[in-house]
């Protein structure tokens, strides 16, 4: 070996795990690193091989957990239920098994009442190859989620994966007690390509990535009030924000619904005529709105907190 080579250890340091990227991590890595070390217990793990019964029809490979991991663990010592979607398998889309696991978890949480649920979204929406089952799964999840919230369960959604949170996933997210989102996390019902296909490139240029992000991305959702908290893209910061939101998230009931009706109504009144996210940010009084997309997370959080306090009572 060359004299130039010094005798240094060249294995990656495990200390980097704290700064590990949420966006880059797999669903399993997110779950493992988010919860207290070693505390995760999976329900119907991959060794059970409960795969989708429908992908075979399309000659598509299955995944042993069908892209949904559910289980329990501890967060800062306190018990928590957790569900995580793998955004790279079938785009994190909801299928029959994938969705049913989350439904079951939420129904259990409703029964237990005292244990919060974390949902780590990473989804393009409904899985087309089993579209009816996926659509229905989303409806069942939404009902189970609201019933759990009625029973006092806090349901916190975390969004920052590759697939974003699209289609029915966006609707489920809208039912959560609280949402945290990173810059990469996008929340929307129709995807950019879908809008472009249906309405033309003049309506929405899906290749204009800056447009996609400022219309659907985490920063806009936070500034608009569609998400309660903005976080940087590390697993550690998602963990911190999850803890915070579990504590601060509201209950659920008529007051919350009325407050949400007012919140959304006010949004339409104020921003209905805005053609672009930039107009909304300016109307909200964001100083130097053009600088928002490039802003580092910490700076953005400070700006967002000044402009709009999270409204925990209206979701």
């Amino acid at each position: 070996m060359s004299a130039l080579l010094t005798e240094t250890e060249d294995k990656p340091q495990t200390a980097w795990d704290d700064a590990a990227s949420w966006y880059e991590a797999s669903a399993r890595q997110r779950v493992r690193s988010l919860l207290d070390a070693g505390s995760f217990k999976e329900f119907i793990g991959p060794e059970q091989r409960e795969v989708s019964p429908h992908l075979r029809v399309f000659e598509l490979p299955e995944q042993f957990d069908d892209g949904m991991i559910v289980g329990r663990g501890r967060l800062s010592g306190e018990p928590a239920f957790i569900a995580a979607q793998e955004g790279r398998f079938m785009g994190g889309a909801f299928g029959e098994v994938h969705g049913a696991k989350l439904t079951g978890l939420l129904r259990a949480a409703r029964y237990v009442k005292s244990i919060p649920v974390l949902i780590l979204f990473d989804t393009g929406g409904v899985r087309l190859q089993e579209a009816n089952a996926g659509e229905l799964a989303i409806a069942e999840i939404m009902r189970a989620l609201i019933e759990a919230r009625m029973a006092g369960v806090k349901v916190v959604g975390l969004i920052g994966g590759r697939a974003g949170c699209y289609g029915g996933g966006g609707l489920i997210a809208g039912c959560c007690s609280a949402l945290a989102v990173s810059e990469q996390g996008r929340i929307s019902v129709s995807g950019p390509e879908v809008i472009e296909t249906n309405r033309g490139v003049e309506e929405f240029d899906s290749k204009d990535r800056a447009l996609v992000w400022r219309t659907m991305g985490g920063k806009h959702r936070r500034l608009l009030g569609g998400a309660d908290a903005f976080t940087s893209d590390t697993i550690q910061s998602f963990r911190d924000i999850a803890l915070h939101l579990i504590r601060s998230a509201p209950g659920f009931g008529m007051d919350v619904l009325k407050a949400e009706q007012a919140r959304l109504g006010e949004r339409l009144e104020r921003f209905s005529s805005c053609a672009d996210a930039l107009d909304i940010w300016k109307a909200e009084g964001v100083p130097d709105a053009e600088a928002v997309p490039a802003m580092p997370a910490e700076d953005f959080i400070a700006v967002a907190n000044k402009v709009r306090e999270p409204r925990y009572d209206a979701r």
């Binding site: 797999s26 399993r28 793990g45 991959p46 060794e47 490979p61 299955e62 995944q63 042993f64 793998e86 790279r88 398998f89």
Partner: peptide
Amino acid sequence: IIGVVASGNLE
């Protein structure tokens, strides 16, 4: 268990 079933990938 390791990996994800995606294009060019495996579990």
